[in-house]
Structure formats: structure tokens, C-alpha cells
Amino acid sequence: MQPINRMKIEFESKSVNESFARIVAAAFASQLDPTIEELADLKTAVSEAVTNAIIHGYEQQEGLIFMECILYEDSITVKITDHGVGIEDIEKARIPAFTSKPELERSGMGFSIMESFMDSLFIASEKGAGTKITMTKKFSKR
């Protein structure tokens, strides 16, 4: 499938950028005329991935987060990359309600939400090198 449009941004690992990132992704996806519910799902999944990069990837320290959005005829692929600490055990991280930071009152639902709100989710991570989340959402034809 050929991409019809693409964009890439980078921003600092700051919690105020969580809303910035999800609004940018939703604005870009709007070109495909998704439903309000589809857009809300996309925003939630992007918010989860960016929050993970800030809290877990960079452990709330300085760092850069990269977001790439690729539009296809009827879907969007979002890639969110950090060069932070990486995930020790991806399988464990994917278990609903598992969190490595219970002291921060994290619910451990981030990956479960990304998985259920998007149509596909891939996690690539290397300890000490960073994490790349690739997720795709299909939009219904209207």
C-alpha cells in the first residue's frame, strides 16, 4: 500500500506535550475524514505512547520524542520513538494492569488501551537504547 501523506515531528519529553502530540496526530488524521469515535481512539492511544516515553523511557528527565504519522487510503500508522532506557521485558509490560511504577499510581493499562483502541500495535525496544511503538488505526469508509 502506498502512503498518501506523511509527517514527522520531534518534541521535548515534557508532560505538557502529551496533549500537543495527540492533537497533532488527530489533526493530521482528519484528512481521512474519520468518525469522532475513531479520532478519540487515536488520541487516547497516542497519549498513552507519549506518556510512556516521558515516564518510563526518559524517567521524567530530559529527552526527545519523535512522532511520525503516515496516512494511507483508509488508515493511519503512528510511530512514536524515544531514546530512553528501553523496556526490560516487553511481554510483561503488555500484561493488563502491570506497571513498573506503582508508586506513581500508574494503572498499567497503557499498552492494553493502545492494543484495543488501535488495529495493530508493535513494540520494539532495546535496553539502554530506547523504544519504538508502531501502531495502525483503520478508518471506516463513509
Binding site: M109, G110, I113
Partner: peptide, 13 residues
């Protein structure tokens, strides 16, 4: 108007 899993953590806490 928007809530992600951070809100869940807040509520459970």
C-alpha cells in the same frame, strides 16, 4: 473531554 490511563490511575488511587 479526554481521559487516558493516567485518569484510571488517579481514580484507583
Amino acid at each position: 473531554s479526554f481521559m487516558d490511563s493516567s485518569g484510571i490511575g488517579l481514580i484507583v488511587g
